[in-house]
């Protein structure tokens, strides 16, 4: 360790006391906005203000109000009084709520599994060079672009109890003799919703995974095949480990979206038949908006919160770990 030259430095580390001097000649500093904005903190505060105000007003405030509503017996036209956890207890023991609660997990679980496997498959297919590649890639995203409500209507028409084209197809190739009860049976209806959700969400998986695939150098695959790996082994030993970070993020996003899904069920089944296909969001809508029991509706919505919280927490931790590594 070289020491500092003694002649230049009186003390180690700390700055020497600055001698008191006459007022220094300072450049004229006109109090203008531009000068004001040179301060990093002030500029940051100004730039962030619009976003923070809007988000505080329409996310933080509603969240607080949602908690209050959930703890009250408010309904449309009545501000309500504090009732503690009564709404939560009531819903927990309510059989329709229980169905909706289970449905939400069932729906999220299977739809995510399908979206991931099919999306991965599609991404691997799209990752190759072929004629019309750009067009095919672009059109694969269509289900994701088009308003969910509108495309779900098309599905609803495709599985219509009377005029279903799917039934017609299966009948004419001789697979069935009687109509399948797509939407008139609770089990069937749930699986229909899962299929439609998969159809809509899979492109998102495929395209983001494709973007991830494209960052993997082909050299790795060539090296692996020189080492004697077949394509199945190449996928599991090379592609999958490198793709895992992207996959986790995409799955988290999709889980949140699917868990909180509303429009698809609202249009496809409306929660029916006989309230058997409700999700938490659609049931909250039915109780909170259609029936007007704001307190109970808010409580049902809030049942989503712990799950979302855990997922987001997991996600944040994972991102931190990636940054740390």
């Amino acid at each position: 360790m070289a020491k500092h030259p003694r002649s230049l430095v009186p003390t180690v580390g700390a700055a020497p006391p600055i001698e008191v001097a006459l007022p220094r000649p300072r450049p004229a500093a006109p109090w203008r906005l531009t000068r004001f904005l040179e301060s990093e903190r002030l500029l940051a505060a100004l730039l962030l203000a619009p976003a923070v105000v809007l988000l505080a007003l329409f996310i933080a405030y509603p969240f607080v109000m949602g908690v209050w509503l959930a703890l009250s017996d408010a309904s449309v036209g009545s501000p309500g009084t504090f009732v503690g956890l009564r709404n939560f207890v009531k819903e927990w023991n309510d059989s329709i709520f229980q169905t909706a609660f289970q449905n939400t997990f069932f729906y999220t679980f299977w739809a995510t599994i399908f979206k991931l496997t099919l999306g991965m498959w599609l991404a691997l297919l799209l990752n190759r060079q072929f004629r019309g590649m750009r067009l095919v890639r672009a059109s694969m995203l269509l289900p994701f672009i088009v308003p969910t409500v509108l495309s779900t209507f098309a599905w609803r028409w495709m599985v219509d109890p009377t005029f279903s084209v799917v039934n017609w197809l299966l009948y004419s190739i001789g697979l069935i003799t009687n109509k399948l009860p797509f939407l008139s049976d609770g089990r069937w209806a749930m699986w229909c919703a899962i299929v439609v959700n998969t159809w809509r969400g899979m492109p998102f998986f495929a395209i983001t995974l494709l973007a991830g695939l494209q960052t993997i150098s082909p050299d790795l695959h060539e090296a692996a095949s020189l080492d004697g790996a077949n394509s199945w082994q190449r996928f599991w030993k090379v592609t999958w480990p490198l793709l895992k970070p992207v996959t986790i993020v995409v799955v988290v996003f999709s889980v949140i979206q699917t868990f909180a899904d509303f429009q698809l069920i609202y249009v496809l089944t409306g929660g029916g038949p006989a309230n058997s296909t409700h999700l938490l969001a659609t049931y909250a809508y039915q109780i909170g908006v259609a029936t007007g029991l704001l307190g109970e509706g808010a409580a049902i919505s809030l049942f989503m919160f712990p799950v979302l919280f855990v997922v987001v927490w997991f996600q944040l931790r994972y991102l931190r770990r990636l940054e740390g590594a």
């Binding site: 996310i59 509603p62 969240f63 949602g66 509503l69 996003f253 949140i256 979206q257 868990f259 909180a260 899904d261 509303f262 938490l280 969001a281 909250a284 809508y285 909170g288 908006v289 704001l294 509706g297 808010a298 919505s301 809030l302 989503m304 919160f305 979302l308 997922v311 987001v312 996600q315």
Partner: peptide, 9 residues
Amino acid sequence: LVPPTLLFI
């Protein structure tokens, strides 16, 4: 990550 369905009421 907050879905709209959590806060609509």
